[in-house]
Design a protein around this nucleic acid. Structure first.
Lengths: 241, 241
DNA sequence: CGCCATATTGATCGGGGTCAACGGCTGTGG
DNA sequence: CCACAGCCGTTGACCCCGATCAATATGGCG
């Protein structure tokens, strides 16, 4: 049984023990996903929300000619499909990129919690805003940065998010069990070019890859390379600068 | 005095007359903006939220080397900076692309309304989700579509949104008083290429431009050209398919 | 041990960027 | 009322980042 990771919306706006408890009680079951398996499909109403316990999932859309754009990565602690509850259907799909575990919370249970515990509702609302902020940064990343910058930026983001989720390795590295083709779909690049750009970052000594793990060798340089500023992640929980 | 347009969050989740009234009472004043003027800057806490009464504003970020990425357009009826209230600071700036009018609502007033009228809070939450959905579509647009598709897609989106805001011209056209350079920054393209792509769409008889207005001559073709499906706009208010 | 997905490398191509010049419209001051 | 300035749209020439196509390693897994 996979242990519960820190909930991101709890970090963004801390809950009381009682509220935290209520959320865990609402979990109907957990579900295991194989790499490549879909959790929710575009158009789904669902009836359930999911909190990621382990693994890497992604939001994605399929476009003309079989092209895929990944809209964001989801890791342990993320509530990934609240919009299915709030809007009644999903505008995108969510799939597992690695083996993964998720906790399943029925919409009815979550709705009830939000009614009885306004602070939970508020925390979830704020998580929604943080996710939106991250998506906005992705628009900028894909729209106006070079491949080299995009990749460096993405690695910075994933490093900090893994740290916040308590899943970082020493030195800010993390388990990057995602395919180069997946990374390409996230950045609007080809898998070939991702490969070459990764080699460049390695050659310059900014990162190292060994057995599915990314090690960050020179954080300041990587941050500079990616034009990265962590503000948009609201890791401080927001409210104050 | 600019009249109040239909509020988008009211359309997304209809309010009672009393609630609608409360929102209007909360407006402290209106503010006029010249084209190019900023409404809110990245990092701002603000203390106020804004509802657009007239004109076109945009969310944007400035990146290295003075590059700008526009993250989304905001038109009449949109609440444009709720994240400043919910997260305490803005992750992006908001500026006027045309002459514009906005209504100013102090955070304190809005907070109080949300406490007394849960349905207003819920409507705003849902507007947040719809905005997030639109931003996700933009990631896909910028990441995986050609310039031709991007532009067609953007025109489709703006046409439907203007219609929903009651600002459309006959035939689905709308006032497009935005610079080609602005459109370029929205799509991750150069102004030159936007110009050429617009000419292509005109040459093929899909659209026409006359005096700051876009006329849509062949909606089905434009939609096809942009790989456009309106689902992500949730113009039906969501909930049901 | 063999299979299949993924990573890697090389060669070539093309969409769209960049640079530069020119034209047209509008607002402004004389 | 006109001349000028400045911004925006338009066009042409050239170039480069990253896509595409095509093999060839490589490593995890049954």
């Amino acid at each position: 049984m996979t242990p519960f990771p820190p909930l991101r919306f709890d970090q963004i706006a801390p809950l009381a023990d009682e509220e935290r408890h209520a959320v865990r009680q609402a979990v109907a079951r957990t579900r295991a996903l194989r790499a490549g398996e879909d959790l929710v499909l575009e158009g789904d109403g669902g009836g359930e929300c999911h909190v990621i316990l382990d693994g890497v999932l992604c939001r994605y859309k399929l476009l003309q000619a079989g092209k895929r754009q990944i809209i964001g990565f989801q890791i342990a602690g993320d509530m990934c499909d609240l919009s299915g509850l709030m809007l009644g259907r999903m505008d995108h799909s969510i799939g597992a990129l690695t083996r993964a575990q998720v906790a399943v919370i029925p919409h009815a249970a979550l709705t009830e919690i939000m009614e009885h515990h306004p602070r939970v509702a508020r925390a979830l609302w704020r998580e929604t805003h943080v996710d939106a902020s991250i998506t906005r940064e992705w628009v900028a990343n894909v729209g106006r940065r070079t491949a080299y910058q995009r990749l460096a930026h993405l690695l910075c983001e994933m490093s900090l998010r893994h740290q916040a989720a308590g899943r970082a390795l020493d030195g800010g590295g993390f388990a990057w069990l995602v395919t180069q083709a997946d990374a390409a779909d996230a950045m609007g690049l080809s898998n070939v070019h991702v490969n070459r750009t990764l080699q460049q970052l390695r050659g310059e000594g900014l990162i190292a890859l060994r057995g599915g793990e990314v090690a960050i060798l020179d954080w300041p340089a990587l941050q500079r390379a990616g034009d990265f500023s962590p503000d948009y992640l609201f890791l401080d929980g927001g409210e104050a600068r």
